[in-house]
């Protein structure tokens, strides 16, 4: 299994306190459904998908998601967020194999 990577992107690049920004959380993840078969061996590829994602802003949970295997490979989750002062945005995801990973991004409003 390849090393998974995740990334948080905030649009636009510069924002002020009180603005509503777009937050995209991108993950490198196979999102296997458990229905696909290996073309060479004919064996079913086991399920491996993200089942929950949590967005926390300065320790407060703003959004949670129940995810199913029907999302695309390397999924992107985009939500809106109201900037409320400087701080940190933490995104945690878990998958059905029990893997938990978190990514953080600094929130630095200008003015």
């Amino acid at each position: 299994m390849a090393e998974s990577k995740s990334l948080i992107k905030i649009k636009p690049n510069s924002y002020k306190s009180g603005d509503i920004v777009k937050v995209s959380f991108m993950v490198m993840h196979p999102m296997e459904t458990g229905l696909r078969k290996d073309k060479k061996t004919g064996e079913t590829i086991p399920e491996e998908y993200i089942n929950s994602v949590k967005f926390e802003y300065n320790g407060k949970v703003i959004t949670t998601m129940n995810v199913w295997e029907t999302l695309s490979v390397n999924p992107v989750f985009t939500i809106n967020m109201k900037v409320d002062g400087a701080g940190e945005l933490k995104v945690t995801y878990t998958d059905n194999t029990g893997k938990v990973e978190e990514t953080t991004e600094k929130i630095k409003p200008k003015g």
């Binding site: 407060k60 703003i62 959004t63 998601m65 129940n66 809106n80 967020m81 109201k82």
Partner: peptide
């Protein structure tokens, strides 16, 4: 997706 007022 479970949202909250903090989403704006």
């Amino acid at each position: 997706v479970h949202l909250s007022p903090a989403n704006g």
